[in-house]
């Protein structure tokens, strides 16, 4: 029987929450990829999005606010054979965890980062999140937002992520496909998901987005896949992705902005230095010798320190 990727834990998100669409897209993607449930884990931070691992019937860590990326990186680098999904809020990823978000772009470990982007901090009663527009006044705010917004697509590209996409939680068909492509992508991916918060964000609603979103893939000439064969083409593709990422006011593009398959993953880079890294990763090694003592030959290993 096929594994049910949805756990039996009661989901306690608000009725009408965009998170449901993301959860369903993830479970469908995992089912369609027919992954062994032992080989895929999810690692989240704090907030409504942080509860996602409990709703998935795969191993999961619900970590600290903003720290899902380093926890997830540890999982991935210790056992590179695992697929690691990282659901996180906009505050989690782009506010408190922004430093890790940028650092992971440089690493490209192979995480599938899904940003639940609703522009507010829902669980703490609707404060402005880093993706909220300057001057916007959602109903949870006592005064208009006096911060500018960070652009998740542009930041992901600038940080070096090799796969950057945007989904809309009410278009699960597209989102599921993006998640599948991202999970199979070797490096790290970022999927910014427009996910209305029906309780605290009365501006960026489902209808608001429905009117604005359009799909990049509808333009048949749109080609986000970078193979690395031509440097000029690669630069052009990056620039196009970046420019598309800036579109927001009138129309909002969804789909895959950038899919660079030429940048080596961090695990591949580690494999250059760590013997048999993929075959015998840190998670799978027996550290105890046959006699119960260390198998490390200390005199040989530290010959440079003997006199």
């Amino acid at each position: 029987m096929a594994h049910n990727f949805k756990s039996d834990v009661t989901v306690d998100w608000c009725p009408g929450c965009g998170d449901f669409g993301i959860l369903t897209s993830i479970t469908q993607a995992l089912s369609e990829l027919n992954l062994d449930p032992h080989n895929v884990v999810s690692v989240s931070g704090i907030g409504c999005s942080g509860k996602t691992p409990h709703y998935l019937n795969i191993g999961g860590i619900h970590t600290l606010h903003g720290r899902s990326i380093p926890f997830a990186t540890g999982v991935k680098l210790s056992n590179p054979n695992l697929k690691v999904i990282v659901p996180g809020g906009d505050g989690d990823m782009l506010g408190i965890g922004a430093g890790h978000f940028v650092a992971e772009g440089r690493r490209n470990s192979g995480l599938t980062i899904i940003i639940f982007d609703n522009e507010v901090y829902g669980l703490t009663k609707g404060q402005a999140a880093p993706t909220m527009q300057l001057g916007e006044k959602t109903k949870g705010l006592s005064r208009a937002n006096i911060f500018g917004k960070v652009n998740p697509i542009a930041l992901a590209l600038a940080s070096g992520y090799s796969f950057v996409a945007r989904g809309f939680s009410f278009d699960m068909k597209q989102l599921k496909e993006i998640i599948k492509t991202a999970i199979l992508h070797e490096g790290s991916s970022v999927i910014d998901v427009l996910q209305p918060c029906p309780t605290y964000n009365n501006i960026n609603t489902m209808d608001y987005y429905r009117k604005k979103v359009y799909k990049l893939e509808d333009d048949k000439s749109w080609d986000p896949v970078v193979t690395g064969e031509s440097m000029d083409k690669a630069i052009e593709q990056f620039q196009k992705a970046y420019n598309k990422g800036l579109e927001w006011e009138e129309r909002i593009p969804t789909g895959i902005f950038y899919d660079n398959r030429a940048i080596p993953s961090f695990t591949k880079r580690l494999n250059e230095f760590v013997p048999q890294y993929f075959k015998n990763p840190p998670s799978d090694q027996i550290v105890s010798g046959v006699d119960g003592f260390t198998p490390v030959d200390v005199v040989k290993t530290f010959a440079d320190k003997t006199i």
């Binding site: 690692v43 860590i61 970590t63 600290l64 720290r67 990326i69 380093p70 926890f71 997830a72 990186t73 540890g74 999982v75 991935k76 680098l77 210790s78 056992n79 695992l82 430093g99 890790h100 940028v102 650092a103 580690l270 230095f273 760590v274 013997p275 048999q276 890294y277 015998n280 990763p281 840190p282 998670s283 799978d284 090694q285």
Partner: peptide
């Protein structure tokens, strides 16, 4: 023969949490 994975992280918050991620897989 094998090797240890050593990662220079972006900060100590990452250092202590990344090490835990690895520990949770058995390393």
């Amino acid at each position: 023969d094998s090797g240890i994975v050593i990662v220079q992280t972006e900060d100590e918050i990452s250092a202590v949490t990344m090490a835990q991620g690895a520990a949770i897989t058995g390393a």
